[in-house]
Design a binder for these strands. Structure first.
Lengths: 253, 253
DNA sequence: CTAGAAATAAGCAAATATGAGCAAATATGG
DNA sequence: CCATATTTGCTCATATTTGCTTATTTCTAG
């Protein structure tokens, strides 16, 4: 294996794992630790990675310092399972929309580097994530930056959406109830979500069980607008039946 | 087998194998290693392959993050001075636009956490940077993600700009000449730059001396559209005079 | 704050790869 | 047919890469 290939491999490993130790890399790539250290040295100088004592961490072209609480949910098993289920529903040639949210971010992280896939998003974190998958065409709806979740919302977003057509929308939520449907914290965000839902042929809500039965401040849409719901097993069978009666396909991951 | 055939064969091999060693090629094509090295040398100069010690790799497989980081370090001192000069021109209440580019990114990094300041941008890196300054209102024009510099360009960007009004635009550039004006590498990006310039009351070009006299592929606008130019001392007095005669205020940082 | 453990950078030597120079073989063009 | 140009393979001095060793730095537990 040549040097550039090794460097590329290290970058790939770092993209999926976020951090890796020198001994691990040495074993994985079957070269001495000295060589790995030399590799990491030049890669750091090229700003491709960030070195640490004992290894290296991923440095994406765009960096955020995720708040602690976010880090905690980042590795949530439920979210990952839901996200992987969602990814399986995506076909080559699709135009997929992902709105802001931790579960949709997880979907982006698990997307294959699929050719001929267009992702429409209003989440800055998802943009950063998809920057590493060069086969995917990324379309960003503009808008005003909402810093708490790094999403773009507001009239600009809504107007841009008016000109786009989406095959499948994956949307996260703060709350989902049978009576009130989707709800979220911010009214402006709610409106942008509504605009997205309006332009999507198929609306797929991704929500782990903690969201179901929860009610947030701003109404988005009633459950009549939802086509599919991906959630996890913890949801009660009675509720699933109720959703199904409304024509919603419920998928448990 | 003729030379061109050999080159073609090498390209084919690299297409399917991604990387190959000099001894392997020597055996496969039944010529000496010297000949292979000579072949690889010319093919590298023609940007058909990427050489490594011991062989060659497919150029496509290596082309990740093409040297943006390298550009970032270059001339960083000059850039910083230019950026700081630019920041001083910003007043409270302004609506400022920053397009993608390393100098404009430096401006964003040096912005004070000023109240009542709106920043319009198409650069994902600038969004990330300004996320840390909560007083600043950030408006993002949407668009298609151009990964090489993490900017949003294309028809969506241009249409969104049509509805906005900008007090001061700070724009970087690849090249700036007296005869051709602003030029950049990508035609679609050029169009989005043009759309920005059209909507700005005041167009301020930030360009260290390395950009001046340089000509890139795609024309953006002639120098008649430029109101101010912030650059550094290395630019010749004669050229400054010429720009001034065209009504451009030249500020040397 | 300190001592011990772990990681790193620097120096070194062996293995390998490279480029330049050269000569032979072949091709080109009058 | 001859003179010249190009291509090829060979040799060798030089350069690069790699793994090992060791001194130094950095981290961490007490």
């Amino acid at each position: 294996m040549f040097t550039v290939e090794r460097h590329k491999k290290i970058k790939e490993i770092l993209h999926s794992k976020k951090s890796v130790s020198v001994p691990d890399l040495s074993g994985l790539l079957d070269v001495s630790e000295s060589t790995i250290r030399r590799d990491l040295h030049v890669m750091e100088q090229n700003k491709l990675i960030q070195r640490t004592h004992g290894g290296a961490v991923n440095i994406d072209s765009v960096r955020f310092e995720p708040s602690l609480s976010e880090k905690e949910i980042q590795f949530s098993d439920e979210k990952l399972r839901v996200a992987k289920q969602a990814v399986q529903m995506i076909r080559e040639g699709d135009t997929v929309a992902l709105d802001g949210g931790t579960t949709t971010l997880e979907i982006a992280r698990n997307l294959p580097n699929m050719l001929n896939l267009t992702v429409v998003t209003n989440s800055v974190k998802i943009i950063a994530e998809l920057a590493n998958l060069p086969s995917i065409s990324v379309v960003v709806i503009g808008g005003n930056l909402r810093r708490v979740n790094m999403t773009l919302i507001g009239p600009i977003s809504n107007q841009t959406l008016g000109k786009l057509h989406i095959d499948k929308l994956f949307t996260g939520t703060i709350g989902l109830t049978y009576e009130e449907g989707l709800t979220t914290t911010d009214v402006i965000e709610a409106e942008t979500k509504r605009a997205m839902i309006k332009k999507a042929k198929e609306v797929i809500v991704v929500a782990d069980y903690s969201k179901i039965g929860k009610l947030a401040f701003a109404n988005v849409v009633s459950i009549n607008s939802i086509d599919k719901l991906i959630t996890n097993t913890s949801i009660s069978k009675r509720l699933v039946k109720k959703f199904q009666k409304k024509g919603i396909e419920v998928i448990t991951a």
